[in-house]
């Protein structure tokens, strides 16, 4: 079989498959090949129950807000390097930073910034003399705990968890600092509101989640959520479980996903529970739709990454410079 014939056969097979998907009531994807399997998800499932109606439904969102809303945007970054090992125990140098950019009259200006450079290591596995040597570097030294046995990869993952915690702490800190200065300002944070205490969440705080690792819905509700048309939202649901009970959430489709992956242009929005959630949801959705412009290209997550959040990332990267 010549390559041309083989190519025709592949194309034909693909065409037939896509037609079959459509005939079955499905939609076709972007056709991108996956070279490697995604890593296993840490928390793939969560629990939620409807707040707005009895089941999750799709609701059309109004036109994008025409005027720019003054608001602040917060995000954080983290970097780390395995500087060396004592035996098989990793010694990691890390950097975390978080910032708030304040948008006034369509212009973004840095408002708050925190950054920290530190050492992370499983201190239990190190001798006192080694730990003392690490302290002598002048950098703060943090313990990341230990697994049941030494493991060259798992030990690093534990350290990364510690780094992520410190990054989230920095994010919470800059948001709190900004909140103290501007108690009535809207703040949009990148990611979940879980890390923020209830007092912080009481205010005008929105979490915009781009990754959909944890799915709170199931069955028809999930399909409704993940197949939302462009400029539609789901009805509001409540996360269930401990302090998360106070967080209300909904999905919002920013861009048409037909011809793309199912998660294309899909974000999940979180807000502290309260009557204001339903009162202001239409306005918030219109606002977030308007944030599709400017696009955050060339970032590959541009379909879900709000431009101001993208700018916070760029700002933090610029502040970090060529940190190594």
């Amino acid at each position: 079989m010549t390559s041309a014939v083989m190519g025709e056969t592949v194309v034909e097979a693909r065409r037939r498959l896509r037609e079959a998907l459509l005939e079955a009531g499905g939609v076709v994807g972007d056709g991108k090949s996956a070279a490697a399997a995604s890593p296993p998800l840490q928390t793939p499932f969560g629990i939620a129950e409807p707040v707005e109606g009895r089941e999750v439904t799709a609701v059309a969102v109004g036109a994008p807000l025409r005027e720019s809303r003054d608001a602040a945007f917060a995000d954080g970054i983290q970097r780390y390097i395995v500087e060396g090992r004592i035996g098989v125990t990793p010694i990691i140098r890390a950097y975390v930073g978080a910032a708030v950019l304040d948008r006034r009259d369509r212009g973004l200006l840095p408002a708050k910034h925190e950054a920290e450079e530190f050492i992370v290591a499983p201190l239990e596995r190190l001798t006192d003399a080694t730990v003392a040597k690490l302290h002598e570097t002048g950098l703060p030294v943090h313990d990341c705990g230990v697994a049941e046995r030494e493991h060259p990869i798992l030990d690093v993952q534990l350290a990364v968890q510690q780094i992520e915690q410190r990054r989230r702490r920095a994010e919470v800190s800059v948001v709190a600092a900004f909140r103290r200065e501007f108690p009535d300002a809207w703040i949009v944070v990148d990611g979940s509101l879980r890390a923020y205490d209830e007092e912080a969440r009481e205010s005008r705080l929105l979490g915009v989640i781009k990754s959909h690792e944890t799915q709170f819905l199931a069955g028809v509700d999930l399909e409704t959520a993940l197949t939302l048309p462009e400029a539609h939202r789901t009805t509001v649901f409540r996360r269930v479980g401990g302090r998360e009970d106070a967080i209300h959430s909904w999905y919002l489709r920013l861009w048409d996903w037909v011809g793309q992956d199912i998660l294309f242009g899909l974000v999940r929005v979180e807000r502290q529970r309260g009557p204001q959630v339903l009162d202001e949801i239409e306005e918030i959705c219109s606002w977030l739709l308007a944030e599709r412009s400017p696009m955050s290209t060339p970032d590959t997550r541009w379909d879900r990454l709000l431009y101001p959040i993208h700018e916070v990332e760029n700002y933090l990267k610029a502040r970090a410079g060529s940190w190594w």
Binding site: R66, S68, R69, R103, W287, E291, S293, P298, Y307, E311
Partner: peptide, 24 residues
């Protein structure tokens, strides 16, 4: 990154949509 991105968000109509944030 690409002038087409501006066209896309403005639905091809200049002035139809003013971005809420000025690009850097």
């Amino acid at each position: 990154a690409d002038p087409l991105h501006e066209v896309r968000v403005a639905a091809g109509i200049p002035g139809e949509h003013v971005a809420p944030t000025h690009r850097t």
